[in-house]
Design a protein around this nucleic acid. Structure first.
Length: 854
RNA sequence: GCGGGCGUGAUGGAAUGGUAGACAUAUCGGACUUAAAAUCCGAAGGGCGUAGGCCCGUGUGGGUUCGAGUCCCACCGCCCGCACCA
């Protein structure tokens, strides 16, 4: 052995691990269990360098936990349903199923050379009938428990593609694929009753001690709990009173008008009777339901001519308007407006010339502004100028609480808790998804499919003819025979539900399925009881809300239906959100000033500038997200063939903290490769030494080794992979300069191999074998730092004068404070500073520092 | 608008309130070489000084402390999330 050749050693050790079956997850009552999971990939057909970083982090944890005596579960699968497969079929022909399984095969071929410690026997794809059949069983259990229901809902409808679009698929009010103006349509859809758990999902966030604060906050905001007052405005015409909800009941004395949503029952009633109202509501409903669309929408109002009475003063009449900015889905779909203390209401009132009261709140010692609405802060002291009978002065939240109490006492309103969280609409008018296992029968209505008929499989073809995916709409809907089936209740001919489930459903319970992937029920209680929860979950911040919230809901719904034991309703004990791998963009200006993007291999980097072959300087935009159109994508396959998996793994962990983005640079990858080569030659050199060679500095080397064990262990435990790698660089340097005995150097290099093993497992294994280690490195227990070796006999203390370092002294580690003081005071620099006077103060922190205050 | 996070050399970044800039990249110098590459050794925050050394320095300003990159307050800048939610 003389050269580091990853292309030889990596396959060799992967074979050795496979032959020894070392990564099979085995329940072992004698060991603590550890379940580490990375968010599983969508099988796009190519692994991305971001996947490499994600799975490498998980692999470091998994290998480390294995070495520290845990029974580890580290599985992998594919989140395989979804639109890209259908889009590919539409564009290029072929079948979504073939496309998906081909991609899975290709991606596995790309992942396996990376040497992850994955138990591949547990692999599944969510499009396997075996998996989605169990998902259908879960659905039926949820249905029975009342956790799934059908209702009419407003959705984004693409009239050309004839499908519902998710909000993200609506761009500027148009369908992202067809370009057609999106309509809002009432459709009967299936919903998960996630709102049943609003309070529980919110409250339990407090217990997620090992989740990023940022993610917890995003979830709290998403659930959006608010406390307010609900009450009714009586109509002067004696019609049904209008219920409104407000979080600022304290502004009631400034009410100007009552507004209702165009989707409010009253608006619909008026619409039927009056074409003008109908025309307005039609206009108001236009545009998508996206935030973007609503942001741009102009505020529109329509005076219904109706009047209501103020609850505190029957003589005070307010007009009723229909306004496009009022959402039917929040509160009661009706509001009262207080222009003095709400900017949006003020804008509306000015536009339509509605009454505006004086402000009646003021900050203490501060006069309210008159041209813009003054929003009384909830948290600060506010003086309440006008007041209700019996209520005088209140401050902030107290004013709100007082008004609610006042309304309840007087019987005209009640305190209500609202959540922003909506029930989860799961119906998709798509082929490539999990069929919803229900049947529509003319006599029996909506009937659940019998469990023994599961899985309800997607039809591959149309009774022998290929399915035509180029026709818009859902192929299931026009399938000649798949729809037809007997009613599970009465046996008469009936029709299947043709909607499929949102793909987020698939990823909401896969973590539980990994514990028993071949079970004939959704979960095996013994297995989930042993392996769940996921001890460490790792993935991108982009899933901070939906995927994680849905999974938390699913765990609760699975608990309610007996698929998870009590106490496992929070599936992820610890969550880590990793940053992206970025790459610089190299661009020049082309015709018409349009940017032209250049591939990294076409750019010559010198002194921080980049040049093309013809000498043109390129503009370098650092740290950009990788994008095909910007020509800055790094393909892991190329990296592995050039440098090997260990280099790729080492590099994506080095330099940047794992939660932050890391910029891929050619020089950085090159440096990682060189370093691994140096470690290799070091091992080679030590292997060639005379076995009985004596040397000097054994103690120093072994102390450095134990310090490194300590630091690297801490680094891995705290996700400080970049810092752990820096320590390993340092220790490699120490070892390469060491003149210690062969025995000491051999010990050091074997520990080095073990410490590097989670990051660069193949290299570690090879060093281990070369030095004659027992068995496989992967089976060796993690080295333990000897506490005694971490403490030096002598310590070097900095001596500060007034907090600035001026000298240092080297003293025995347990020298008394008094002795240290004496030595410090005797220093020339200290004597000079003291100038014959006694120090004002003398601080000695043993083993740390001396500070002389003059 | 609301909420959160982050500002450290040329660059990515280290640093339980205790020697700021570990480690790495880029740069420069040296060794080896006919030469280059590779490899190895070394320098390097800024300023002043021949030197011993001194002064300044973690976005800006203040505060707490013997001591602040780290804690507190205000401001500036950047990034992210949410948002017609009544």
């Amino acid at each position: 052995m003389s050269r580091y050749t990853p292309s030889e050693i990596e396959p060799k050790w992967q074979t050795a691990w496979r032959d020894a079956d070392v990564f099979k997850a085995v329940r072992d009552p004698g060991k603590p269990k550890y379940y580490v999971l990375e968010m599983f990939p969508y099988p796009s057909g190519k692994i991305h360098i971001g996947h490499v970083r994600n799975y490498t982090m998980g692999d470091v944890i998994a290998r480390y936990k294995r070495a520290t005596g845990h029974a580890v579960l580290h599985p992998m699968g594919f989140d395989a349903f979804g639109m890209p497969a259908e889009n590919a079929a539409m564009k290029e022909g072929g079948h979504p199923k073939d496309w998906t399984y081909n991609n899975i095969a290709v991606m596995k071929d790309q992942m396996k050379p990376l040497g992850f410690s994955i138990d591949w026997t547990r692999e599944f794809a969510t499009c396997d009938p075996e998996y989605y059949g169990q998902q259908q069983a879960l659905f039926l259990d949820f249905l029975e428990k009342g956790l799934v229901y059908r209702k009419a809902a407003t959705v984004n409808w693409d009239p050309v593609d004839m499908t519902v679009l998710a909000n993200e698929q609506v761009i500027d009010g148009k369908g992202w694929r067809s370009g057609a103006e999106v309509e809002r349509r009432e459709l009967t859809q299936w919903f998960f009753k996630i709102s049943d758990y609003s309070e529980e999902l919110l409250a339990a966030i407090d217990g997620l001690d090992h989740w990023p604060e940022k993610v917890k906050l995003m979830q709290r905001n998403w659930i959006g709990k608010s406390r307010g007052l609900q009450f009714a405005f009586e109509r002067t015409d004696g019609g049904e009173a209008i219920e409104v909800y407000t979080t600022r009941p304290d502004t009631l004395m400034g009410a100007s008008f009552v507004g209702i949503s165009p989707d409010h029952p009253l608006a619909k009633e008026l619409e039927a009777a009056n074409p003008d109202v109908a025309a307005f509501c039609e206009k108001a409903r236009q545009g998508g339901t996206t935030e973007e669309a609503m942001e741009k929408a102009e505020k529109l109002g329509f005076d219904t001519g109706l009047k209501v009475r103020h609850p505190l003063n029957p003589d005070w009449e307010l007009p009723v308007w229909i306004a496009n900015f009022i959402l039917m889905g929040y509160g009661t779909g009706a509001i009262f407006a207080c222009p003095a203390h709400d900017q949006r209401d003020l804008d509306f009132c000015r536009k339509y010339d509605l009454p505006v009261t004086d402000t009646f709140f003021a900050l203490d010692g501060d006069s309210p502004v008159t041209d813009t609405a003054f929003v009384p802060p909830k948290t600060e002291k506010v003086r309440w100028i006008n007041h209700f009978a019996g209520l005088d002065i209140a401050t902030g939240q107290d004013a709100i609480d007082a008004t609610i109490a006042f309304a309840e006492e007087n019987g005209w309103g009640k305190g209500v808790t609202q959540y922003r969280l909506r029930d989860w609409g799961l119906s998709r008018q798509r082929y490539w998804g999990c069929p919803i296992p229900v049947v529509h029968c003319d006599d029996c209505g909506v009937v659940p499919e019998k469990k023994e008929n599961l899985p309800i499989e997607l039809p591959y073809d149309e009774d022998g003819a290929p399915i035509d995916f180029s026709v818009p709409g859902n192929p299931l809907d026009r399938h000649p025979s798949w729809r037809d089936c007997p009613c599970p209740a009465c046996g008469k001919p009936a029709k299947r539900e043709t909607d499929t489930m949102d793909t987020f459903v698939d990823s909401s319970w896969y973590f539980a399925r990994f514990t028993a992937p071949r079970a004939t029920t959704p979960t095996d209680i013994d297995e989930v009881d042993y392996w769940m929860n996921v001890d460490q979950y790792i993935g991108g911040i982009e899933h901070a809300i939906l995927h994680l919230l849905y999974s938390r809901f699913f765990a609760r719904a699975m608990r309610a239906t007996g698929h998870l034991p009590q106490g496992q309703e929070e599936p992820f004990d610890a969550l880590f959100t990793q940053g992206m791998v970025t790459h610089a963009i190299y661009q020049t200006k082309g015709a018409g000033g349009r940017p032209v993007f250049h591939y990294p291999e076409d750019v010559d980097l010198r002194d921080g500038s980049g040049f093309l072959a013809d000498g043109t300087e390129v503009e370098i935009i650092p740290s950009a997200k990788m994008s095909k159109s910007k020509n800055n994508v790094v393909d892991p396959v190329n990296i592995i063939s050039a440098y090997g998996a260990d280099t790729a793994r080492w590099f994506v962990l080095s330099d940047s903290p794992p939660e932050r983005d890391v910029e891929w640079t050619a020089s950085g990858a090159e440096a990682a490769y060189k370093h691994l080569g140096r470690v290799w030659s070091l091992c080679d050199r030590i292997g060639a030494m005379d076995k009985d060679a004596k040397g000097t500095g054994d103690d120093d080397l072994l102390r450095a080794m134990h310090k490194t064990i300590h630091d690297v262990t801490m680094g891995i435990e705290t996700f400080g992979f970049n810092a752990a790698i820096a320590k390993l660089y340092g220790f490699t340097g120490t070892l390469s300069k060491s003149k210690a005995s062969h025995a000491a150097q051999r010990e050091a290099v074997m520990v080095l191999a073990q410490l590097m093993a989670p990051m660069t497992p193949h290299l570690a294994e090879d060093i281990w074998a070369h030095q004659g280690g027992d068995g496989l490195c992967v089976d060796a227990p993690w080295p333990v730092a000897d506490e005694a070796m971490l403490v030096e006999d002598t310590v070097t203390l900095p001596v500060q004068i007034n907090g600035k370092r001026r000298a240092e002294i080297t003293v025995p580690k347990d020298l008394s404070k008094e002795e240290v003081e004496k030595i410090a005071l005797a220093l020339e620099a200290v004597q000079k500073a003291l100038d014959g006077k006694a120090p004002k103060k003398l601080i000695v922190v043993p083993g740390r520092i001396v500070n002389v205050v003059v």
